[in-house]
Design a protein around this nucleic acid. Structure first.
Lengths: 307, 307
DNA sequence: ACAGGCGATAAGGGTGGCTTATCGGTCGGC
DNA sequence: GCCGACCGATAAGCCACCCTTATCGCCTGT
């Protein structure tokens, strides 16, 4: 059995299409077809349901693809680790980040890159926590920043980094009557833009409101924190975002930041990595960086000022 | 990189000799030499110190061999698991057993073989606990029965099975004056044969005696429980062995079994398996058997009678 | 000095995997 | 109902890789 066959097989499981999988592996379609056939022959089991199209994996195939992904991941880890012994860490760190942490991730990646100048970091910042954890399990990502709550964290290592606390951001004139705090019910009176209902950051807000028997129907919904702040920047909108956003990015000109009355919204952000032992060097190095980076300290000292 | 290259490399690390490693892999010596060379070229690091003889592995090589063993073990696990889905469990379960448990191991292997008739079980019963654990870490054994005390059990799963308690076995005439108990100091008066000083079962006895400021210099030492009992069978010797031996094997004709006065010698026996996740199917199945087999119950009910 | 052991090198041969070209079969659109 | 597009299997040829045997260079022990 060859590593190449396992790569082809994993590609096929991912692409669900022989020709696409072949092209993803930079080989011709017959080459991939035959490799799969050889694999099936060697194991003595059909791995793929063969209709006239690809029709999914057999139970044996489903089982094999888990092992294959693991073995290929360890194959990568092996190469990276050996390479690290001579030149220091190299290679690519694939990091999945929930949008809420797309600003704070720099507090992690920046010291990491400083420590390991030869490592290439690839970020994906539009993923949901569950997608990130799944892809770490499939060894398609090395690590992720997620909301660990409500996640199935079996088979992954969870390393809490900091707690985010939500604040209201609005143009100074819209909230002229408030010192540095605003009640939830007053907040509802403002022209509000929020994240989409499918997003966890929004669900946190909805849940907090529901606890007060309040409900918010924002005039504008978006999938991006940046566009939230951009709307605030027009002077006619308010939004609710994690305060951590304002420590790493400056609030729009003219905007003020108000704390929301208790119960404040808190949700923890964690670094997750595969629990496979000993796992890829890069993930280990990232965990080490996270321990040293004092991220909670950097973010948690004081709420951002609105000067 | 091919699985075959990793196999060759692991064989070389084990045999410490190119020609022997090649022969162990059923290939010619140049084939193995070139495969290693290719591996080094591919990784861009020397893996083997090249003098005129084999001179050990470089740091990178030491690191690689750990990964290689792991990957090859997972490769095996993969094949076994896929095969198990169609025909039930098959393959070979490699089990390392300390001599003290070479009788009781049947309580585990027997139900296991009954449950999984297609599995071939290979026992090695002359290993020390530390050797067993090391070889499990190197994926050369699937599981073992060991004394978990004093062992470094990182990277392995430990599953306690039962406690052994030592008893004295001697011909009836030698111990005619005793009911069913004998003191340690009286025991010293008997012509005693014991295990070698290097063996854990002997060290337990020496430690217990040392606690009473006693010391035993047996007339005869051996590395085998069977030969101990054989000497007892002559009628002129006494020995001290775990009682569990007498539940699975009958004591010699004419022999009597006496409990030793407090503090009784107790030492636990555990099943250990690799902690690699999810690990080989066979090891998982063996753990399941161990849970169901009620071994402690079977052995611990009452001390063996000497009828 | 010489023999023997060890690992590297050389030359040749066979297998296996990759390529392009083509086929058989199914499905969707007109 | 037919035609075309798409999908995966098959065919034939080629190349590369890996294994073999034979030999060499070097060191070591006697």
């Amino acid at each position: 059995m060859l590593f190449r066959q396992l790569e082809y097989f994993v590609a096929l499981a991912r692409e669900r299409h022989f020709a696409r999988a072949a092209s993803a592996c930079y080989v011709s379609q017959p080459a991939l077809s035959e490799a799969i056939r050889k694999l099936e022959h060697e194991l003595g089991v059909p791995l793929v349901w063969r209709g006239h199209n690809y029709e999914g994996l057999t139970p044996e195939g489903e089982r094999l693809v888990l092992w294959a992904r693991r073995i290929l991941a360890e194959h990568d880890s092996l190469k990276q680790e050996v390479a690290a012994l001579q030149t220091g860490l190299t290679g690519r760190l694939r990091l999945g980040v929930i949008p809420a942490a797309s600003g704070t991730v720099a507090l992690l990646t920046d010291p990491f890159c400083a420590e390991h100048p030869l490592v290439n970091v690839h970020l994906e910042t539009s993923l949901r926590s569950s997608e990130i954890v799944d892809r770490i399990r499939r060894f398609e990502l090395d690590a992720g920043l997620v909301y660990p709550d409500d996640q199935d964290v079996s088979d992954v290592l969870v390393h809490p980094l900091y707690e985010e606390q939500h604040v209201l951001v609005a143009n100074g004139e819209l909230v002229a009557g408030y010192a540095d705090t605003i009640s939830w019910s007053d907040a509802l009176e403002l022209p509000m833009c929020l994240l989409n209902e499918g997003m966890r950051g929004r669900q946190l807000i909805d849940a907090a409101l529901a606890a007060h028997d309040l409900k918010l129907t924002p005039r504008l919904e978006t999938d991006s924190f940046v566009s939230l702040l951009a709307h605030v920047g027009t002077g006619r909108w308010a939004c609710i975002i994690p305060q951590t956003w304002l420590r790493t990015l400056r609030p729009p000109a003219g905007a003020r930041v108000l704390r929301l009355e208790a119960p404040s919204l808190r949700s923890s952000i964690a670094l997750v990595t595969s629990a496979a032992e000993p796992g890829p060097v890069l993930a280990r190095a990232l965990r080490r960086t996270a321990q040293n980076a004092e991220i909670a300290g950097t973010l948690g000292t004081a709420p951002p000022s609105d000067e």
